[in-house]
């Protein structure tokens, strides 16, 4: 009797104040969430808007509308050259990283041998090291063997830096793969080769695509490795942009940044089509 009375009395008396605190507290939580969302998108939006300003300096809100900064951008040979350099470097590091990553992921997921855990740790180790340290280490190593800063050194550095991402993406997909699918294929009379191509490889293609996109984007954008390993002549776009941001205050830099944002958006569309964003979040 007393027990049930207690429940009834504590219920409503606590309710009004508790409700009020609840509302304020959650109001605060939602406000922070909204601010975080704003913080994620606003800077990029502002950069894009500023790139259309008619003024010769950066100002917000932008005044007028012009595409002259984009035209200016494409008239600068140095920028175009460095963009091409970046593209070439990214293609190479993506190709090398995936060529190494896919077989390694197979071995790390399906192999049975002593020291497998250690092998896995070694392959994802570069992820624990900041890009700067990877770049510096490669630069110093080069000094030993008379190997200078160059496109090749940058490609190697970026490959080291990105390999763990690619390996982990493919490994995650392989772990999800139901081994019964391959057994089913074999029992239906398919050869091992056919099974590998049509079932195994086909199933991990999304991970390979996502891995390639990530490595490509990271290689294209990367500055921390590039500052130490890129050739002083023929700099990649990221290093070029780094200098522009520091020394050039014209809205042309905003135009260049806007193009990179657009580029990222396109890549994301491709990724969400091929893999799905929820999966990427992991």
């Amino acid at each position: 009797m007393t027990h049930s009375a207690e429940i009834i009395t504590t219920g409503p008396s606590g309710t009004i104040l508790a409700d009020w605190i609840d509302r304020v507290g959650f109001g605060l939580i939602w406000a922070l969430a909204a601010f975080a969302l704003l913080l994620l998108i606003a800077p990029s939006l502002i950069v894009v808007m500023i790139s259309f300003t008619e003024t010769a300096y950066i100002t917000f809100p932008p005044q007028g509308f012009t595409l002259k900064w984009y035209a200016d951008l494409f008239s600068r040979q140095q920028i175009i050259d460095s963009a091409i350099t970046s593209l070439r470097i990214s293609v190479w590091s993506t190709a090398i990283a995936l060529t190494l990553a896919v077989p390694a992921a197979f071995s790390l997921v399906r192999g049975r041998y002593p020291g497998k855990a250690f092998a896995g740790a070694l392959i994802v180790a570069p992820q624990m090291i900041p890009g700067m340290v990877i770049g510096v280490a490669l630069l110093f190593f080069g000094a030993y063997i008379a190997f200078r800063q160059s496109d090749l050194m940058l490609i190697l550095g970026l490959t080291v830096f990105c390999l763990p991402f690619a390996v982990r993406l493919v490994m995650a997909q392989l772990q999800l793969l139901d081994p019964a699918l391959e057994e089913a294929s074999l029992s239906l009379g398919a050869t091992r080769k056919r099974t590998f191509v049509q079932i195994t490889l086909r199933q991990i293609i999304p991970a390979i695509v996502a891995g390639a996109a990530f490595v490509f984007i990271e290689s294209f954008d990367n500055l921390t490795v590039a500052l130490f390993t890129a050739s002083p002549r023929g700099r990649p776009l990221s290093v070029e942009l780094y200098n522009l941001v520091q020394y050039d205050s014209s809205p042309m830099v905003a135009a260049l940044s806007s193009l990179e944002i657009l580029f990222a958006f396109v890549i994301m569309l491709v990724l969400s089509r091929s893999v799905g964003l929820e999966r990427l979040a992991k």
């Binding site: 090398i96 060529t99 190494l100 990553a101 077989p103 390694a104 197979f106 071995s107 790390l108 997921v109 399906r110 192999g111 049975r112 041998y113 497998k116 092998a119 070694l122 392959i123 180790a125 570069p126 090291i129 340290v133 990877i134 280490a137 490669l138 110093f140 190593f141 190697l156 550095g157 490959t159 080291v160 390999l163 390996v167 392989l174 091992r192 080769k193 590998f196």
Partner: peptide
Amino acid sequence: RDGRGIWPAVPAFVFLTIFFIIPM
């Protein structure tokens, strides 16, 4: 293809040893 054994991971090991472990 079978993904068994350490061999498929060897190229990655060699690469990382030369361009990551030794530089470190």
